[in-house]
Amino acid sequence: MLIHEAPSPHDEARPDARTGEVRSHSRGALVARRMARNPETVAGLLLLAVLTVLALAGPALYPWDYGQKDFTAFLRPPSAEHWFGTTQIGSDVFALSLRGMQKSLLIGLLVAVVSTVLAAAVGACAGYFGGWADRLLMWQVDLLLVLPGFLIIAILSPKLRERGFLILVGLLAIFGWMITARVVRGLTISLREREFVQAARYMGIPAPLIVLRHVIPHLASFLIIDGAISVSGAIIAEAGLSFFGFGVQPPDVSLGTVIAAGASEAVPHPWLFAFPAGLLILIVLAVNLVGDGLRDALDPASARGAR
């Protein structure tokens, strides 16, 4: 659990070897230096940057669109014209994969942001106010924890498919914040009696502002790490739902729908399945490496972050 009020004085100011002057470093610079010293984090950042640029700029540079069909090339293997080959109906697998990456990355990012904000708000309010507010909010958390989220999303998503993928984002976010909220609640309980919170209370600052300005900022390290890791979980959840037909709906595509379309032909025509599945693995791997790097960089007690 990460609660940081300020960087360590030894990290924040270091004497210059030539002038003897003490130079102060911002928290962001310290985190950036720690991440830069971690080769796995650098590799994850580079991989994620390449995949993101490819997903965003690739469709504009590649001659085929995900909605186009080449009626002279059915189930063709990878070639100079179709880099990842073609499907049974002549669609370009590379173009489909680029579109799928766009959708999967967008959904993962939106779900992580919404679920992290929900967890921070509910957990901090429950821990700070206590009493009936704590019991009511935690009762809602416990109720959502016992509900079968995957099954509920699978039932509701097809009925709301005409409203777009944002409905899927909302459903995934609703069932993805409860564990984090419980952790935030516990951390907030340990913070609410600290001197800086009591001082703000004695100054007459309203309780909601204390939570917003004094409690949540001290949980920022934990929330940033949790949010980064939640991106990969949301991408996997969306891909699983789309694979079974409950996520992104045609004519739009995600990596889950592209993988599902090629699963039945994975043995005789492996390019239909292997390329989009490989991209999904690379995205999740890159996000997890970045999340681990953030954890190590933001946690001074971490052995890897202290290197």
Rank of each mutant, 00 (worst) to 15 (best):
F94V: 01
I89A: 11
S157P: 09
L241H: 04
F243H: 01
D252P: 15
A239H: 05
G85F: 07
K159H: 09
I174R: 02
T116C: 03
V287E: 03
I281K: 07
G227A: 14
L56R: 05
E12I: 10
L105D: 01
S264N: 15
V169G: 03
M101A: 08
V215F: 11
V231R: 10
V287N: 02
P158G: 12
S221L: 07
L109P: 03
E40P: 08
V258M: 00
A32Y: 13
Q88T: 08
I89Q: 15
F129M: 12
V184Y: 01
L172H: 09
Y202W: 12
L241A: 02
R295P: 04
N288R: 10
D65N: 14
S91H: 14
L298C: 00
G256H: 02
M101T: 00
L279A: 09
S254I: 10
L105I: 05
T86Y: 06
H214Q: 13
V183G: 04
F273A: 01
P208S: 09
H218S: 13
H218D: 01
L110A: 15
L279W: 10
G240Q: 11
G204M: 07
R23T: 15
L255H: 03
I3C: 09
S8Y: 13
G164T: 11
V197Y: 07
S115R: 10
A228F: 04
A286W: 11
G20A: 09
L143E: 00
V183H: 04
W139T: 02
W177D: 06
L223C: 08
A80W: 12
R27E: 14
A228G: 07
A80K: 06
G164D: 08
G100C: 07
A60W: 13
G245P: 06
V248E: 06
V290S: 10
Q249W: 13
V258G: 04
A121R: 07
G127Q: 07
L30H: 15
A124T: 06
L151P: 03
F243T: 01
L212A: 15
I210W: 06
F222M: 14
F196H: 13
L56S: 03
V146D: 09
V50Y: 01
V93M: 11
F273Q: 00
V122Q: 05
A112E: 07
Q68F: 12
F74Y: 12
R163L: 14
C125N: 12
E12W: 11
A55V: 04
P208H: 06
A200H: 11
A73S: 06
P300W: 00
F244Q: 05
I259P: 00
L187P: 03
L151W: 10
E162T: 13
V22Q: 15
P250V: 04
S221N: 14
A286H: 03
S97N: 03
G67Q: 14
R76L: 10
F94A: 09
V248Q: 02
G108Y: 11
V111I: 06
R18M: 12
F244E: 06
V169P: 02
L2W: 05
E238V: 07
L298N: 03
E195T: 10
L209K: 12
E21V: 11
H214I: 08
